[in-house]
Design a protein around this nucleic acid. Structure first.
Length: 390
RNA sequence: GGCGGGAUUCCCGAGCGGUCAAAGGGGACUGACUGUAAAUCAGUUGGCACUGCCUUCGGAGGUUCGAAUCCUCCUCCCGCCA
């Protein structure tokens, strides 16, 4: 066994799914200059989630080895919408949404990336091209090639719509590689087709082709599908510590192995049961994104509320204007917790509403103002409010 | 351009004149249990002044005592042919 150097091709590609073409990365590293390592992101959602940090970590390794990361904010391509892995056409975003997302995206990416070796570009700068240039780009690729793609093929077979714009997407993001003269491009495994097409397009423009590296996709908190904002099974890097901690504990046991490997680069600690392994993972993630001191606090608060069934330390106080001395509970719950009064009635009937930790009777529809004022109302296990009756 | 099929509640998907706020599944929520917001089991899942009333089945009209269900026009999607 020879020790791997932290800047060698073998080291950099050790946990990648693909690193193509074979030997390509070695050749690029042999150029003895900082490589331009591309990552394209679509600011379609404001949050970076944990799945995305798998790729960001890899970029960080390239930076630490002296290379330059070129982060492309897809303000141009966001108007098209990446069809990868999608079963339906994405809705288009407004200019304002795109720019707002782009700004928060950068902040969050810097939780992982090194600001020093980072170049941020907006692809709207070059995608807003004259018709003649667009036609030249379109001439590089055939329809047959595009619809070979798995998700297009499936959608065509299933009779669901595929928009022309979506067909265009891989070409536009491939052109990004030309515009920034990318040496290496990273992405999730779902990006393999797009990344490879980038090589074809670079060749068509007379450039050296980029090396592509794909990273495994992290499963979401449901343990089944890939982590994605639109599936609602994600953990955002800028979420509050308690959310990151709690959501991490809620992953299925079967996801432990891959979460440890992809996020922490290690095996789950030997000798720990699934629960304690998850707690260790949750602490590590909170520590990474919120600061080490937050990890202990988040765990303590979680135990207080969920293990011991207690009330949180900082219950928000909510003022409620009572119409008389008797307060109608469904209306109160609706106002305080943002549920409908019908839903509030059902929750009371199901024993889901507590006052100072004591479950209210199923038929409790009103209480006196004195019984409520200054007391803590809880809805389910996670929603609390201290009442101020006025 | 021609012919045919389709649009259902958060999602998928039944329904084809009254018994439909609309089957079933998914998701979500609540409860029990527990090792956690895992797993498992049970319940709930349009709104409201809640034994009743109101709004919903792509949009606008119409037929009927009565329409998600029938008719007309419109919008969008899919397939085959050209």
């Amino acid at each position: 066994m020879t020790a791997e150097r932290a800047d060698s091709a073998a080291w950099l590609s050790r946990n990648a799914v693909d690193c193509l073409p074979r030997g390509g990365l070695e050749a690029k590293l042999g150029l003895a200059r900082p490589l331009r390592v591309k990552l394209g992101i679509d600011p379609t959602a404001a949050d970076i989630h944990l799945g995305f940090t798998v790729v960001l970590q890899k970029l960080r390794e390239f930076q630490d080895a002296g290379h330059t990361v070129v982060l492309i904010i897809g303000d141009g391509t966001a108007r098209v919408g990446d069809p990868s892995g999608r079963s339906a056409t994405r809705p288009m975003l407004s200019e304002q949404e795109i720019m707002r997302n782009a700004a928060t995206f950068q902040d969050q990416a810097l939780k992982v990336l090194d600001r020093e070796r980072l170049e941020v570009r907006f692809n709207g700068d070059w995608l807003d091209m004259p018709m003649a240039d667009l036609l030249r780009l379109l001439a590089t690729t055939t329809v047959a090639h595009l619809i070979e793609r798995d998700d297009f093929a499936k959608r065509l077979a299933a009779g669901t719509p595929v928009a022309m714009l979506e067909l265009l997407y891989p070409l536009l993001q491939g052109y990004d590689s030309v515009a920034i003269r990318a040496d290496v491009e990273l992405g999730g495994t779902d990006q393999r087709f797009n990344l490879l097409l980038g090589r074809d397009i670079q060749r068509a423009y007379g450039q050296e082709e980029q090396v592509i590296m794909t990273m495994p996709l992290l499963t979401g908190t449901d343990g089944v599908r890939k982590m994605s904002k639109s599936l609602g099974n994600y953990i955002g890097v800028s979420e509050p510590p308690d959310e990151i901690y709690g959501k991490t504990l809620s992953i299925p046991d079967a996801s432990l192995q891959s979460w440890f490997a992809l996020l922490l680069g290690q095996e789950p600690p030997a000798g720990l049961g699934p629960r304690d392994a998850k707690r260790a993972l949750a602490r590590a993630l909170v520590g990474r994104f919120c600061g080490p001191e937050q990890a202990q606090d988040a765990e303590r608060r979680f135990d207080l509320i969920h293990v011991r069934g207690g009330l949180p330390e900082d219950v928000p106080t909510v003022a409620y204007e009572a119409a008389g001395s008797a307060v109608a509970l469904p209306a109160l719950l609706g106002r305080v917790f943002g549920v409908s009064t019908s839903q509030a009635r059902r929750l009371i009937a199901q024993g889901g509403v507590k006052l100072d930790g004591a479950t209210l009777p199923a038929d409790a529809l009103e209480l006196s103002a004195e019984a409520l004022d200054g007391h803590v109302l809880s809805l389910g296990k996670r929603r609390f409010a201290r009442l101020l009756i006025i």
